[in-house]
Measured scan of single mutants.
Amino acid sequence: SIEEEIKKAEEAKEKGKTFIHGDFVATTEELLDELLKRLRKKL
């Protein structure tokens, strides 16, 4: 679910890890923020 993806992305951000969502690879905090923004729009 979208909620689960958001939670996983937030955890990755806290730990400074890379998060992959489909073909979107978030390797930096900026990219994770962008991904979180996109996911929240889908809610």
Score class of each variant (00 low, 15 high):
1 S>P: 07
1 S>Y: 12
1 S>W: 15
1 S>N: 10
1 S>T: 11
2 I>H: 03
2 I>R: 07
2 I>N: 03
2 I>V: 08
2 I>G: 05
3 E>S: 09
3 E>W: 14
3 E>A: 11
3 E>L: 13
3 E>R: 09
3 E>D: 08
3 E>T: 08
3 E>M: 13
4 E>I: 08
4 E>T: 07
4 E>Y: 04
4 E>L: 09
4 E>F: 04
5 E>G: 07
5 E>I: 15
5 E>R: 09
5 E>F: 14
5 E>T: 15
6 I>H: 03
6 I>F: 02
6 I>M: 05
6 I>W: 02
6 I>V: 06
6 I>E: 02
7 K>H: 09
7 K>M: 09
7 K>T: 08
7 K>Y: 04
8 K>M: 11
8 K>N: 08
8 K>F: 04
8 K>T: 04
8 K>V: 03
8 K>H: 05
8 K>L: 11
9 A>W: 03
9 A>Y: 01
9 A>L: 12
9 A>R: 04
9 A>P: 01
9 A>F: 04
9 A>V: 14
10 E>H: 05
10 E>I: 10
10 E>G: 03
10 E>C: 10
10 E>Q: 10
10 E>F: 06
10 E>M: 13
10 E>W: 04
11 E>F: 03
11 E>A: 10
11 E>Y: 06
11 E>P: 02
11 E>D: 12
11 E>L: 07
11 E>K: 05
12 A>T: 02
12 A>D: 04
13 K>M: 08
13 K>G: 03
13 K>W: 09
13 K>N: 02
14 E>I: 13
14 E>Q: 13
14 E>S: 12
14 E>W: 06
14 E>V: 10
14 E>Y: 05
15 K>I: 05
15 K>H: 11
15 K>Y: 07
15 K>G: 10
15 K>S: 11
15 K>N: 13
15 K>L: 13
15 K>C: 15
15 K>T: 12
15 K>P: 04
16 G>E: 10
16 G>Y: 06
16 G>D: 11
16 G>H: 11
16 G>Q: 04
16 G>K: 13
16 G>W: 06
17 K>V: 12
17 K>M: 14
17 K>F: 15
17 K>T: 12
17 K>N: 14
17 K>Y: 13
18 T>L: 08
18 T>S: 13
18 T>R: 11
18 T>E: 14
18 T>Q: 14
18 T>W: 14
18 T>M: 12
18 T>D: 15
18 T>A: 13
19 F>M: 14
19 F>H: 15
19 F>E: 13
19 F>P: 14
19 F>Y: 12
19 F>G: 15
20 I>F: 05
20 I>T: 10
20 I>V: 12
20 I>E: 12
20 I>N: 05
20 I>H: 09
20 I>G: 04
20 I>Q: 12
20 I>S: 03
21 H>D: 13
21 H>L: 09
21 H>I: 05
21 H>W: 14
21 H>T: 11
21 H>V: 09
22 G>P: 08
22 G>L: 11
22 G>C: 15
22 G>N: 07
22 G>H: 06
22 G>Q: 05
23 D>K: 01
23 D>F: 09
23 D>P: 00
23 D>S: 08
23 D>N: 10
23 D>I: 11
24 F>W: 11
24 F>L: 07
24 F>E: 07
24 F>S: 02
25 V>S: 06
25 V>D: 05
25 V>N: 07
25 V>L: 09
25 V>I: 13
25 V>H: 10
25 V>R: 01
25 V>A: 08
25 V>Y: 11
26 A>W: 09
26 A>H: 01
26 A>M: 04
26 A>K: 01
26 A>C: 05
26 A>D: 02
26 A>S: 06
26 A>Y: 14
26 A>N: 06
27 T>C: 15
27 T>W: 14
27 T>N: 15
27 T>K: 08
27 T>Y: 14
27 T>G: 11
27 T>M: 08
28 T>W: 09
28 T>K: 00
28 T>V: 08
28 T>D: 06
28 T>F: 11
28 T>S: 09
28 T>C: 15
29 E>C: 14
29 E>D: 10
29 E>K: 13
29 E>F: 09
29 E>W: 12
29 E>H: 09
29 E>L: 12
29 E>V: 14
29 E>G: 12
30 E>D: 10
30 E>I: 07
30 E>V: 07
30 E>S: 08
30 E>A: 12
31 L>H: 10
31 L>W: 07
31 L>F: 06
31 L>S: 06
31 L>E: 15
31 L>Y: 04
31 L>N: 06
32 L>I: 13
32 L>A: 00
32 L>R: 00
32 L>P: 00
32 L>S: 00
32 L>H: 00
33 D>W: 05
33 D>L: 06
33 D>Y: 05
33 D>K: 08
34 E>W: 10
34 E>Q: 04
34 E>F: 04
34 E>A: 03
34 E>S: 00
34 E>H: 02
34 E>M: 05
35 L>K: 00
35 L>I: 12
35 L>W: 05
36 L>P: 00
36 L>V: 07
36 L>E: 04
36 L>Q: 01
36 L>K: 01
36 L>T: 00
37 K>S: 12
37 K>F: 00
37 K>L: 09
37 K>M: 06
38 R>H: 15
38 R>G: 08
38 R>I: 15
38 R>V: 12
38 R>Q: 14
38 R>Y: 14
39 L>I: 07
39 L>N: 02
39 L>W: 00
39 L>Y: 00
39 L>S: 01
39 L>F: 01
39 L>E: 01
39 L>K: 00
39 L>H: 00
40 R>M: 07
40 R>D: 08
40 R>H: 11
40 R>N: 07
40 R>Q: 09
41 K>S: 11
41 K>A: 14
41 K>R: 10
41 K>V: 11
41 K>G: 11
41 K>W: 00
42 K>R: 11
42 K>W: 13
42 K>C: 12
42 K>A: 14
42 K>V: 12
42 K>Q: 14
42 K>M: 14
42 K>F: 09
42 K>G: 08
43 L>V: 05
43 L>Q: 07
43 L>G: 01
